[in-house]
């Protein structure tokens, strides 16, 4: 009895550690480079995290590109439901995120706030999926007999460098508006605090988000910036909180294919940090013309 009691004691059980892998094409592969890094928080290592390579960027862009057309073809209503579903799944996993955010060095109070704001933010953008088009589209009264209208279309594949300091809310605050309109994305998680990003990938994987719509890498932006900003199949780049030099390098490379680059230095916890203009930032305006036949009840004008 005594022995068995001792055996069941918590302190004696070897904890099963979680392997933090990346999220590409709906799967959780290790980096193809088999490299790792160890983020350190308050002198303690967070563990072995995948150090993404050039080829991981390539693979994830391929995944994002293959998923993009189908994701954009989903109805806005369907995308809204899926974003809502992500929020639901996140809510259910709150405790795990709380633990990880604290491990990553956040105070418990802030971590809790960050989680609830993250959930609410997803719901906020879920609601926008079938509304932003009505806010930003226009019917244009051209001076000829044509029907002319402008609508937003997703720009395509977006590469996002997520906030270093706001590891969950910052990540979600970029991903949600980007995918709301039908873009797919590759997101580089916070280098220092990548755990919550990977756990968020697990949320995505169980939230009806098709594989490839969101891909999450862990690693160093300095190493990867050239590879994603020169990648010909990336349409737009979102950088949050990077330094001037890195932003400049990224923008210079981006110019090779006229990529759209959006630079953010956002306090994501602010209410105003969530808005449909972020959706518009990753959309193209398409204008369509068509003749209007001129026949009225009093006859034809021809």
């Amino acid at each position: 009895m005594t022995e068995s009691n001792e055996n069941s004691g918590k302190s004696d059980r070897l904890e099963v550690l979680k392997t933090y892998k990346m999220y590409i094409d709906g799967k959780f592969p290790r980096t193809e480079s088999a490299r790792y890094y160890q983020p350190v928080v308050n002198g303690t290592s967070l563990g072995n995290v995948c150090l993404a390579s050039r080829k991981d960027v390539r693979n994830s862009v391929v995944a994002a590109r293959s998923a993009q057309a189908a994701w954009a073809r989903r109805t806005a209503y369907n995308r809204a439901q899926i974003l809502y579903r992500i929020a639901e799944m996140l809510e259910g996993r709150s405790q795990q995120f709380l633990d990880e955010l604290i491990r990553q060095g956040m105070e418990a109070d802030s971590a809790e706030t960050q989680i609830t704001q993250s959930i609410d933010r997803l719901i906020y953008y879920a609601g926008w999926c079938d509304k932003y088009q009505q806010v930003f589209s226009s019917v244009n009264p051209v001076a000829s007999s044509h029907f002319n209208f402008s609508t937003l279309e997703p720009v395509g594949v977006v590469f996002a460098v997520a906030s270093r300091d706001c590891p969950l809310l910052g990540l979600i605050s970029l991903i949600a508006p980007v995918i709301a309109s039908g873009n797919t994305c590759v997101v580089l998680a916070s280098e220092n605090s990548p755990l919550s990003a990977i756990t968020f990938a697990e949320v995505l994987a169980t939230s009806d988000v098709p594989g490839g719509v969101v891909n999450i890498l862990t690693g160093r932006v300095e190493e990867l910036s050239e590879h994603f900003s020169r990648h010909l199949d990336v349409n737009a780049i979102a950088c949050d909180g990077l330094g001037v030099d890195l932003n400049t390098t990224i923008k210079e490379f981006a110019s090779e294919t006229i990529k759209r680059v959006k630079i953010y230095h956002q306090e994501w916890s602010a209410e105003a940090a969530a808005n449909p203009y972020l959706i518009q930032d990753f959309c193209e305006v398409k204008t369509t013309w068509h003749p209007i036949e001129q026949i009225t009840e009093s006859g034809a004008s021809y």
């Binding site: 244009n140 000829s144 398409k286 204008t287 369509t288 013309w289």
Partner: peptide, 26 residues
Amino acid sequence: AGVVWANTYNLFDPTSPFGGFKESGF
């Protein structure tokens, strides 16, 4: 493409937004 003309072509109007996708600009 940023401008699509259906059953017409090369029409312009001040009220009609004009501009490109991809390497045609932003």
